[in-house]
């Protein structure tokens, strides 16, 4: 009896397992197909950017045949941009500004997150809530009053003003991720270090930063994305080509009056997207891992 029962049970279990397996397989394929559809929809604009960047002005305006295909592909647009001194300057400025902004943002937010997650002081709780709320006051409200401040410190039309302003866009989110991450580090670790006589900065440097590396990378990537793509502040505060950054530079340089050089604009758009794409490609896993730990615990 027991043998047959066991056999039946095994059979049922196997069947269930089999159907489960089949179900899983279906779910898997379904997921792939659904993802494929989404990827297709998401990539239509970038694809069109690529296609247009390979066309000459004449082909774009001729409108013969499908706009989704290139009939006479040319790299002239890319070549023009790469050898165009203004574009090189924008690129360099963007890289410089972004590196500085990321550095400034990370220093500020790591220090603040460490303090807010581990050291209480009067108002620290309000501050850790309040930091996130700075997003309630967006750049579109701030750029007019900021004219005076930026003017007073003499940074109108100087990309250093972006190094001061962009961190306001990145720091609150980065601080929030880092608070989450630091809070997930067991308190015993730093208590032990404290008892051993380590200073706070030593604890931060030796214990927190190495342990929280994924979180730091996630925050860095966020800061990078924000400062690479910001538009309103450079539009408002920069106006000469030697100070300009990519986002505004491309638009102000390649659109002349009511003349759009679409091929070049699209090529520039691709070239400008290159650094973030490369960075995401390499650091994606850290990004997800960092967010996983930082944003969800805490």
């Amino acid at each position: 009896m027991s043998a047959s029962a066991t056999a039946r049970r095994v059979a049922v279990a196997a069947e269930r397992k089999h159907s489960l397996h089949r179900q899983r397989l279906w779910a898997l394929w379904g997921s792939y197909i659904a993802l494929g559809v989404f990827v297709f929809m998401f990539l239509v604009p970038p694809f069109y950017t690529l296609i247009t960047s390979l066309k000459s002005s004449a082909e774009i305006s001729a409108q013969t045949g499908s706009p989704w295909l290139v009939h006479h592909p040319t790299l002239d647009n890319f070549w023009y941009l790469i050898t165009y001194p203004n574009f090189q300057t924008y690129y360099l400025n963007s890289v410089l500004v972004t590196i500085l902004v990321v550095a400034v943002s990370m220093v500020i937010s790591v220090l603040a997150a460490f303090s807010l997650s581990r050291m209480g002081f009067w108002g620290s709780q309000t501050l850790s809530t309040g930091v996130f709320l700075t997003y309630l006051i967006p750049p579109s409200l701030l750029f007019i009053p900021l004219f005076q401040i930026i003017g007073a410190i003499g940074l109108i039309n100087n990309f250093w003003c972006l190094v001061l302003l962009y961190p306001t866009l990145a720091v609150p989110f980065c601080t929030w991720i880092m608070i989450g991450y630091f809070s997930s580090i067991p308190k015993e670790l730093d208590e032990a270090a404290l008892i051993d006589g380590a200073g706070y900065l030593q604890i931060l440097w030796r214990i927190f930063i190495p342990v929280a590396m994924p979180g730091i990378i996630a925050a860095t990537i966020f800061a990078f994305t924000v400062s690479w793509g910001a538009f309103l502040y450079p539009l408002a505060y920069l106006y000469t080509s030697n100070q300009m950054v990519l986002t505004v530079g491309i638009i102000s340089d390649l659109i002349r009056g009511d003349v759009f050089q679409w091929g070049k604009i699209m090529a520039a758009c691709l070239l400008a997207s290159l650094p973030p794409i490369v960075i995401y490609a390499f650091l994606m896993d850290y990004y997800v891992a960092g967010l996983t730990a930082g944003a969800t615990k805490g």
């Binding site: 220093v107 500020i108 937010s109 220090l111 603040a112 460490f114 303090s115 807010l116 581990r118 050291m119 209480g120 002081f121 009067w122 620290s124 501050l127 930091v131 700075t134 006051i137 409200l141 701030l142 007019i144 009053p145 900021l146 005076q148 401040i149 001061l164 302003l165 961190p167 306001t168 720091v171 609150p172 601080t175 706070y200």
Partner: peptide, 30 residues
């Protein structure tokens, strides 16, 4: 500890105060 904690937050406070809070109040005035 709280002094150090405050000092570590100081860059953040200055940044937010200088480039967000102050201009926000100025915007209200405007």
């Amino acid at each position: 500890r709280s002094t150090i904690g405050f000092l570590l937050c100081l860059p953040l406070i200055l940044l937010i105060a200088g480039f967000v809070i102050y201009p926000a109040f100025y915007a209200i005035y405007l």
